[in-house]
Design a protein around this nucleic acid. Structure first.
Length: 429
RNA sequence: GGAGAGGUGGCCGAGUUGGUCGAAGGCGUUCGCCUGCUAAGUGAAUGUAGGAGCAAAAACUCUUACCCUGGGUUCGAAUCCCAGCCUCUCCGCCA
């Protein structure tokens, strides 16, 4: 979220950045409104200054017992004019704020050009895609035949797109969450957070889900609360309207939450099983850092997420998103994709973004420099570390055996207590 | 859900018979003085945001707004009225 002064002083560089995302058209009406705003301001402030002066005068006249009726009538007429200007100003202001709130973040210089996902660049590929010498099953068949996933009953109790895990499926899910949290907390030095799963409008606005993604949020209308689409929202907003001291930075958080997304308008598109769901679990990493460090921290964060996949021995690749495919608030973003042998496709399991000061401005999160001077905006980052839904697809499919069973990854065994998901007793181990 | 108390600057805390209050006092912070060092003492400074002026930036000057939020009354509101939000205490209900 940019302030007016910044837009006015950096119009051309903003226009260039926005053009890379195909959003440059948004700037002109803002500039026009801004000019009108200043015009009104100039007029109304003169009137207000006069009103203040005359009112003081009335005060002293009255105190000394004089008659100020005529002056009062005059100032009253000033007040009427002021009200007209103020009303107009209010209209212009809210229109401006609305328009500015739709300006996305500017892509970092290092971000490749491109209009859509087809221009994303593969930066790295890890692991070997497994080769099977038998007909393989997809995650849905595996989940059903092994009795660990029950999408039908999930649909019965809630609706389609609400996963339901049973027996070893539920245990595997829980193991995965604990494993990821433990790794980030104990080995990568993140502080664990367990936040609310519902947030208010201000929080969604601050992290940039609103206005653009409003339609994708589940809302509790009676209470004006929204189910979180990601832990990024409550965790980043912990520090809304706060000022850090410079030496408190960087702040690193890891949070497990369920995530809720309406996925409005995406029906029929890759909606089988876990490929697109309304509720899923995710361990999210959030960093609040010094502006000078955010690109280093972005690399670190991405490596922290990749480490999980390597420990789980899941083949993945890292994609750098092109300017046109960047999320609304991101200045730079890497996606991590896991391999699905059944789909023969890469599936997005993580998205690691540097928001620079975009969210910090909206959320008013600052730090006080050691050298003194004004508080500056921090940079915020986050990334999934990771989402279990797509991970579960890769995990089941990549680790299936000819018998139709699934081997649990070695690192998970201490968490699950079992190393194989067979046909029997998956609900009574 | 019911009853009551309260929301003021980085913090604490005055200010509620409306007027010179952006707001006393204290703490903290910054700069200086003093003292072998530290502590203590002492002098001064110290809110944020917007606009205008100065060719630009900084400084500076002028000005507007802000005492939870949004309305209202008034020539004039931190102070009065209305609505809302939040916090605390007590009661009820409940996992």
């Amino acid at each position: 979220m940019y302030n007016l002064k910044f837009i006015r002083d950096n119009t051309e560089s903003m226009r260039r950045g926005l053009a890379r995302r195909g959003e440059a058209h948004r700037l002109d009406s803002i500039l026009k409104l801004e000019e009108r705003r200043r015009g009104i301001l100039a007029e109304v402030e003169v009137l207000k200054a006069e009103r203040n002066a005359k009112s003081r005068e009335i005060g002293s006249i009255k105190k000394s017992g004089g008659d100020a009726n005529e002056l009062q009538a005059y100032v009253r007429s000033l007040g009427d004019k002021i009200k007209d200007f103020d009303d107009e100003l209010k209209t212009v202001d809210s229109e401006l704020q609305e328009k500015i709130s739709w300006l996305p973040n500017l892509p970092h210089d290092s971000v490749p050009d491109g209009e859509d996902a087809s221009s994303n660049v593969v930066r790295k590929e890890w692991g070997e895609k497994p080769e099977f010498h038998f007909p393989i099953k997809d995650h849905l068949e595996l989940g059903r035949s092994l009795g660990i996933l029950d999408f039908e009953r999930g649909a019965k109790v809630a609706g389609s797109g609400f996963p339901l895990y049973t027996g070893k499926g539920a245990a595997l899910e829980r193991a995965l969450i604990n494993f990821m949290l433990d790794t980030h907390v104990k080995e990568h030095s993140y502080t664990e957070i367990y936040p609310p799963f519902m947030v208010n409008y201000e929080s969604l606005f601050a992290t940039g889900q609103i206005p653009k993604l409003l339609e994708d949020m589940y809302k509790c209308k009676d209470d004006d609360l929204y189910l979180i689409p990601t832990a990024e929202v409550p965790v980043t907003n912990m520090h809304r309207d706060e000022t850090f001291s410079e030496k408190q930075l960087p702040v690193n958080y890891a949070a497990f939450t369920a995530c809720f997304r309406r996925e409005a308008g995406s029906y029929g598109r890759e909606t089988r099983g876990f490929l697109r769901v309304h509720q899923f679990n995710k361990v999210e990493l959030v960093k609040i850092v010094h502006p000078d460090d955010s690109y280093d921290e972005h690399e670190k964060l991405t490596l922290n997420a990749e480490r999980i996949l390597e420990m789980l021995e899941i083949p993945y690749r890292r994609l750098e998103l092109c300017a046109g495919d960047l999320g609304f608030a991101a200045a730079k973003c890497y996606d991590l994709e896991v391999w699905s042998p059944a789909e023969e496709k890469w599936l997005e399991a993580s998205s690691c973004s540097n928001f620079e000061d975009f969210q910090a401005r909206r959320a008013n999160i600052r730090f006080k420099p050691e050298s003194g001077g004004k508080a500056l905006f921090v940079h915020t980052l986050n990334g999934s570390g990771l989402a279990t839904s797509r991970l579960m697809v890769a995990l089941l499919e990549n680790n299936q055996t000819e018998e139709g069973t699934v081997m649990a990854p070695k690192v998970l065994v201490p968490y699950t207590g079992f190393s194989i998901i067979g046909y029997k007793k998956n609900t009574e181990f």
